[in-house]
Amino acid sequence: MIVINARFLTQPITGVQRYGIELSLALKKQNAEIVFVTPNNIIHHDIALRLNAITIGKLKGHAWEQLELPQFLKKNNSPLLINLANTAPVFYKNKISTIHDIAFEKFPLSFSWKFRQFYKFLIPRIVSSSKKIFTVSEFSKNELCSLYSTPKSKLEVIPNASSSIFTRSTTNKTQAKYILAVSSLTQQKNFVGLIDAFNMLNDQQHELLLVGSINRNFATQTLIDKIDSNPRIKFAGRVSDSALVDLYRNAEAFIHPSFYEGFGIPPLEAQACGCPVICSNIASLPEVCGDSALYFDPYNTVDIASKIDNLLVDSNLSQSLVKKGYENIKRFSWDSSATKLLVSIKDLQ
């Protein structure tokens, strides 16, 4: 028996939860005998139903994961447990764990003190106690190996992909003119730099639309003030997937200004919807986007502004990036990632 720790079904969707959900759905198609186990405070009920997820225990969050989940597993002959969303029961040995990145080490101001201290305690112990570690890019693999002195043979890259809902439009774009950015608004996402660059543009026709969540533990007052200072900067907060598809399809450009990404799913989503991508030239992004994006130095606001301006005025460049984007997304699929995962665990069952 293979068991998936499906606690991600109890959490709002960011990239980590998206990975858990989409990879689990692909795994379910390829191996119907996989068992998905979750606390009872599920918020993604439709996904839980598709996975036939089993709810166990009375606790939730980390307490459920560290106490009730391993108890359930030990009562069921200690099967192989696969963890897809950064955390895992530390003292359960027959497990594989997925660590997406080490942003809490690289950009501590993006996280609360309590969160950082907990992850500093938890993650190295998960790495050392797991039979294998999955991660989402060669960039993250190298970072994990370096920080935790872990042999590369223990780590394997199981990448993200764009979900099937993100597709190009069959109709013409709307007349709205905006540049789109999608992410949680934390320090390493560099929205402050993006806004500074946007304010440098001579163009007065386009708006900057920011989609994502602001957690008051994470967001700085500087960022909030900058959003409020320019009426052409709009903050939409979280939106549904269907609304996000429309936003990608109708944007003049998608921009991803991050200082740090373990993978970065939004550029692939934008490309799948036919939107040209401008993004940072550091971390995992060149690995993920290849030659299909227009790159800038995220620490140089003049460079960011220049690349935005280049794309807005050069329709040939825009169309070229759209075509390259369609080709780039073919390199990634949840089905192929699921297949790779199942092959990787074959000898560990």
Rank of each mutant, 00 (worst) to 15 (best):
F104T: 02
K60Q: 14
L67W: 09
L73M: 08
I56Q: 09
A53M: 07
T55Y: 11
K95I: 00
H100V: 10
L59E: 11
T98I: 13
N77W: 06
G57M: 10
W64H: 04
L81C: 06
I96A: 03
I96L: 08
D101I: 14
L69E: 03
I102S: 10
D101W: 13
L81N: 02
T55I: 11
K95D: 01
K74F: 08
A88K: 07
I96P: 01
E68M: 11
K93R: 15
P70D: 10
P89H: 12
A88N: 02
S97D: 02
N76G: 04
P89F: 05
A53G: 06
Q66S: 05
E65Y: 01
D101H: 10
I56T: 15
I99W: 06
L84T: 02
K93S: 15
G61K: 07
H100N: 05
T55C: 14
I56C: 04
T98M: 12
H62D: 08
N76H: 10
V90N: 09
K93G: 10
N77Y: 04
A88C: 09
T55G: 08
E65R: 05
I82T: 08
A88E: 07
P79H: 07
K58H: 08
N83Y: 00
N76D: 05
V90H: 09
N86D: 10
Q71C: 10
K95F: 01
I102N: 05
Q66N: 07
N77P: 01
H62C: 09
K74D: 04
I96C: 08
D101R: 14
L81I: 05
N76C: 01
F91R: 05
I99R: 06
A85V: 12
L69W: 00
